[in-house]
Write a protein that binds this DNA or RNA. Structure first.
Length: 185
DNA sequence: CCTCAGTAGTGCC
DNA sequence: GGCACTACTGAGG
């Protein structure tokens, strides 16, 4: 039985081989939560990043896809994603390209099942995926999420109810939750 | 308020 | 394989 770890290491090595650099196109749009960078690979939406500085966003994208060639030109996609972020009630029909280990995929799937307007704790997510003691690993998987808001890692809180971390700023996490709470879907 | 151990997945060496 | 990281948690000062 081959471990997931070995598999992902293999594909990472293949990617690093760079015989055919992957192309990722992106664009930046504005939203009430700041700038939104949306990026797509051949497979689908592969990154949604939040921030205030376009250069920082691009750098973050490049860091997440070190071996990829970046190209601008996804204005429509970015606008679509920004619209989704403004009103989470609507659905986003773009295909997703979620990259991660089996464990991360499982966690992200669980996150997507948290209804808008509600929250869950890291412990609850760990229980839901059947790995009750992997609480900390769950948090790590949340932190590794590349699709802000689309994979709603902002809906995960500490078990005491407090907000802990958010990759794109704790204040932004607070705003997202406040908006979703008020939207009462 | 604080520290500490237990814990599991990941990344880097 | 090892080792040092965590967006955690509950117990104990």
């Amino acid at each position: 039985m081959q471990s997931d770890r070995a598999i992902s290491a293999k594909s990472a090595a293949r990617r690093q081989g760079q015989r055919d650099p992957e192309k990722i196109s992106f664009a930046i749009a504005e939203s009430s939560f700041g700038l939104v960078l949306a990026a797509r690979s051949a497979k689908g939406l592969c990154a949604v990043l939040l921030g205030d500085n376009p250069d920082h966003l691009m750098r973050e994208l490049q860091q997440r896809f070190p071996a990829a060639v970046l190209a601008e030109g996804e204005g429509e996609l970015a606008a679509e994603v920004a619209a989704f972020i403004e009103s989470p009630s609507r659905s986003l029909d773009a295909p997703l390209d979620l990259r991660g280990t089996r464990f991360q995929q499982t966690v992200w799937q669980a996150l997507r099942e948290i209804p808008s307007g509600t929250t869950a704790s890291y412990t609850e997510i760990a229980l839901r995926i059947g790995q009750p003691s992997a609480v900390r690993a769950v948090a790590q998987a949340c932190a590794a999420n590349a699709l802000a808001v689309i994979v709603p890692c902002h809906r995960v809180l500490r078990s005491d109810g407090k907000l802990s971390g958010y990759r794109w700023g704790i204040e932004r996490k607070r705003l997202l939750l406040a908006k979703e709470a008020g939207a009462r879907l």
